[in-house]
């Protein structure tokens, strides 16, 4: 039981839970209290201070949308957004129930009746938008990885190819998503004309923009990892006369995995960060669009709702990072090097 709880704490990145678990199991109470003060007490004081400064500072500023919201208002809106979500779900359920009842009645009257099944068309709720954003970022991340990993490996293996591609990599790497978006929009619009509803155009545009910004970290880390594999490993491969494929898959890639995962982790972080900007402009129905719509809407709650989005983005970004760290630990042979 205790072991499970401790494992859970470290996997979720909540290291501060560890002394609590130990405290409840009666392990060196004074030691644990000290530990708790350090890991929980001090950050808690900082957070409370931040909330107080925010609370009183916010009151000083009046915007065209009213006073800057304080923590209390943001919390209100968090609850309101959740309530809207629940409401919308109830409405959707009722709609489907009505539709089913209507169709059943029709069929009872005439078994050959023409049945129409329609999707509920309510507006996406905040929770829906979070999931759209997650889908988009994973799509973008997937595209980025599919491009960056092979190119990174090839760059790492061949110095000449690295020299050929390096200038382009260095030039494209710092470009903002806002610059890529119009170009991607025009190209996707020109190429992806079917629009059969399988994938929304705006979804593809945001995903590709995310890829263009996030693939560089993976590419560079992979190339660096592959090109800097321990000299001894390469010597062993030479002595054993391993074939190039065997050398790549049995030695170079396993040796590079930790760095590849560092790259993937940065890529996912960058992707999530630029996603909001991409969605805002591409009007992909995700968190970015939510922020943009609230900004355009300009009601008295808008700023508070945007702040909810800020925290959501932050917390989800943190969770994604933790997931990547755990994956990295899973595949890495040297557990000590991972933060």
């Amino acid at each position: 039981m205790k072991a499970i709880a401790l494992k859970l704490c470290s996997v979720t990145g909540m290291k501060w839970g560890i002394p609590f678990v130990k405290l409840f199991s009666g392990e060196e109470v004074l030691e644990q209290l000290k530990e708790i003060w350090g890991t929980v007490g001090i950050p808690l004081i900082a957070i409370v201070t931040f909330l107080l400064i925010w609370h009183f500072g916010a009151k000083q500023i009046d915007t065209s949308l009213g006073q800057v919201p304080g923590p209390a208002m943001v919390w209100e809106q968090t609850k309101a957004l959740w309530a809207e979500h629940v409401d919308e779900r109830i409405k959707a359920d009722e709609f489907y129930a009505r539709q089913d009842a209507r169709n059943a009645a029709k069929l009872a009257k005439n078994p050959n009746a023409n049945i129409r099944v329609v999707d509920y068309t309510g507006k996406p709720t905040y929770i829906d938008q979070i999931f759209t954003s997650l889908k988009t970022v994973f799509m973008g991340f997937l595209i980025a990885s599919l491009i960056a990993l092979p190119i990174g490996i090839i760059c790492g293996l061949s110095k000449k190819i690295m020299q050929a591609l390096n200038p382009m990599i260095q030039v494209f790497k710092p470009v903002s998503p806002l610059a890529w978006l119009p170009i991607v929009t025009m190209i996707v619009s020109a190429v992806y004309v079917t629009n059969d509803g399988w994938l929304e155009k705006s979804f593809i545009i945001s995903a590709i923009t995310v890829s263009l910004c996030s693939l560089w970290a993976t590419l560079i880390n992979t190339a660096l990892g592959v090109s800097s594999v321990n000299e001894d490993y390469i010597n062993v491969a030479k002595v054993l006369q391993l074939s190039p494929t065997k050398k790549t898959f049995k030695i170079v890639l396993p040796a590079t995995l930790p760095l590849i995962f560092t790259g993937l982790r940065i890529s996912l972080g960058v992707g999530w960060m630029v996603l909001i900007a991409a969605e805002m402009l591409a009007q992909n129905p995700g968190l970015g669009k939510f922020v943009w719509d609230e900004f355009q809407n300009g009601s008295s709650q808008s700023l508070a709702r945007i702040m909810v989005a800020v925290f959501t983005v932050g917390i989800i970004g943190f969770i994604l990072d933790r997931i990547m760290v755990e994956l990295q630990k899973l595949v890495s042979f040297d557990k000590k090097t991972i933060a």
């Binding site: 001894d232 490993y233 062993v236 049995k250 396993p254 040297d334």
Partner: peptide, 11 residues
Amino acid sequence: VVFQSPSLFPW
């Protein structure tokens, strides 16, 4: 060859 560092593949 036996190298100075063991040079085993740790994975």
